[in-house]
Structure formats: structure tokens, C-alpha cells
């Protein structure tokens, strides 16, 4: 089984040298959903941004490889890398209210890049957009194409962003907490929709979340991140039955289940976080040596 995305020993640092990602490695295979979990600030979003070339200016990749569909992105010149990413990967953003340009109609926001960058004919791009809007269950796609973002609800906009992400048949989609900004009732539908689209288009999906409950529903494999370091990489069943790393186990214990809804009140114990903290520091020492 070939991997659409392979990250090898990716290290990202602040300009002052402080590490944000510490030799991260992970694999997302064709048609697979890979979850990326960890507490807030662990660096989940930065992995996605490093792949898509949108790291904040204060951060830079200092070493490692990012293989996307057989090409090491970091070995390409900047403009070539950008084109490559645009053609093979796509992002489903977190907040549908801020991810659409308020001064442009929906149609061009989906079709323009197909024409501008990928060289499609305008009619083909429009037909494609209409099809995709149908696939994400948007009623009256033709009208929606002519609407401005402010005329649509958050759920609708997230559907549009999902459709748009699939527009160029990307090999890899990165979804960064795609439901956290939504209404609880809409969250489930959107989650199901992403799963549905991923399966139909057989895309590799990197799914960033801090919700293990969500991961258990949509993912095939997952990586647990702590302070920019992958502490465990596992297949789903194995992970939920027998987490290997103590931090993973603690995280799992802190996730509410039907049988034990109160467990969200158990925080990850101090002894466990201290232990991971020590592990990360040892890693830094070894990397520095």
C-alpha cells in the first residue's frame, strides 16, 4: 500500500531556535484516514501547515522530509512547491465563517483556481463545482454559486469548503478541527459528510482533532502528539484496546464514554505529564548531541 503523505523527522523551530515540532514522522496511506490528536498547543496544526506550506513567518522547517505523492516537497523551489501542493493537496479549514472571502461569490471561490492554476476550461470548472455542491447535499447549487458567503449559514459554508477541497481531486486532504466551530447538531452531519466524501474519492485524509471520540469514529490510524513530539503511532483498534504510551493511556482514560460519562472530569495525571515532559527533554538532548 503506497503512502500519499510521508513525513520523516520533521523539525520545525521558532526563529530563536525553540522547537515546535520535534522530529515528527508519520504516514498517511491512500484511502486512509489518519488522526492527529494531542492537547492544545501540541503542534497538530503546525504539522498541517508545514505540509501545506503555510507555516507562520516566525516558524521554519529546520530539517526533515515531507513526501507528497512521491515528491519531497522540501527539495522543490518555492514556486514549484506551491503549485505542487495546490494540485495534490487541499485543506478543510476549522472556521467556515472566516475561510471564505467575504467580497467574492461562492462560485468563483471554487472554480477560479481550477482555471487559473490547473488550466481547466471555465465551463468544466463550473460543471465540476455544481456536481460537488450536489455531492455535499447543498440544495439549489446554482443559486448558492451566485451567493456571497454572508448569505449562507455556517453549516452550508462548511459544506462548500468541503466541496471546494475536493474540487481538484487531491490526493491528500488535511482537515484541521473541521467541526469545532460548528453547532453540535451540525457537527455530526459534517463529520459524516467528510467520511462519505473521503471514501467516495478515495483520498488520504489527515484529520486533526483533540477529540478522541471523533477519532474513534472516522480514523483508521492515529498519531498522538505531545509538545511537538509523536509519542505514539497506532492503528485504531489496537490503540483503543491497548495504548502503549502512558500519555496515550491517560488521554484515553480522560475521554468520556457512554459507560463512563464522568471520565472527562479526570484530567491527565501530573505524574504522566511529568514523565512525557522528561521524555521530550531527553529527546532534545539527544538531538542536540
Amino acid at each position: 500500500m503506497s503512502s500519499y503523505l510521508t513525513i520523516k523527522n520533521l523539525t520545525v523551530r521558532l526563529k530563536n531556535g525553540a522547537p515546535i515540532l520535534r522530529a515528527v514522522s508519520l504516514d498517511v496511506a491512500a484511502g486512509q484516514v489518519h488522526g492527529l490528536v494531542g492537547e492544545s498547543g501540541a503542534g497538530k496544526s503546525m504539522i498541517g501547515k508545514a505540509v501545506l506550506g503555510t507555516l507562520p513567518r516566525a516558524l521554519q522547517v529546520t530539517s526533515g522530509e515531507i513526501w507528497l505523492d512521491g515528491v519531497d516537497l522540501l527539495s522543490l523551489p518555492a514556486s514549484e512547491r506551491r503549485r505542487r501542493i495546490g494540485a495534490t493537496a487541499a485543506l478543510i479549514p476549522q472556521d467556515p465563517l472566516t475561510a471564505l472571502n467575504p467580497s467574492k461569490r461562492i462560485g468563483p471561490q471554487i472554480t477560479r483556481r481550477l482555471v487559473d492554476i490547473l488550466g481547466w476550461r471555465k465551463q468544466d470548472a463550473e460543471a465540476r463545482a455544481l456536481d460537488l455542491l450536489g455531492e455535499v447535499h447543498i440544495p439549489d447549487p446554482a443559486r448558492v454559486m451566485r451567493s456571497y458567503p454572508h448569505e449562507l449559514s455556517g453549516g452550508m459554508r462548511q459544506r462548500i469548503l468541503i466541496a471546494s477541497a475536493f474540487a481538484a481531486e487531491p490526493k491528500l486532504i488535511i482537515a484541521d478541527e473541521p467541526t469545532t466551530a460548528l453547532d453540535v447538531t451540525v457537527q455530526k452531519q459534517i463529520l459524516r459528510l467528510i467520511g462519505e466524501m473521503q471514501a467516495r474519492h478515495n483520498t488520504a485524509l489527515l484529520f486533526v482533532t483533540h477529540d478522541l471520540g471523533v477519532v474513534s469514529k472516522v480514523c483508521d490510524t492515529l498519531s498522538v502528539l505531545y509538545a511537538g513530539k509523536v509519542v505514539e503511532e497506532a492503528r485504531m483498534q489496537r490503540f483503543f484496546m491497548r495504548p502503549i504510551h502512558p500519555y496515550s493511556a491517560a488521554l484515553l482514560a480522560a475521554t468520556p464514554t457512554y459507560t463512563n460519562p464522568d471520565s472527562s472530569l479526570t484530567p491527565v495525571p501530573q505524574t504522566v505529564t511529568d514523565a512525557v515532559e522528561r521524555e521530550v527533554r531527553e529527546h532534545d538532548l539527544r538531538a542536540g548531541a
Partner: peptide, 24 residues
């Protein structure tokens, strides 16, 4: 976010500034 999203679509800095950011 919409500027970042445009970057991931393969648009370069000049396009992003003049077409995505400027009108707003």
C-alpha cells in the same frame, strides 16, 4: 483564514495580496 486557504490552492504572494486581501 481565506488568505491562507488561497495559498494552499497554489496562489503566490502577489495574487494573494492583490486579489484576496486588497478588496477587503
Amino acid at each position: 483564514d481565506y488568505v491562507t486557504l488561497a495559498r494552499t490552492k497554489g496562489y503566490g504572494e502577489n495574487h494573494v495580496i492583490t486579489r484576496e486581501a486588497l478588496p477587503n
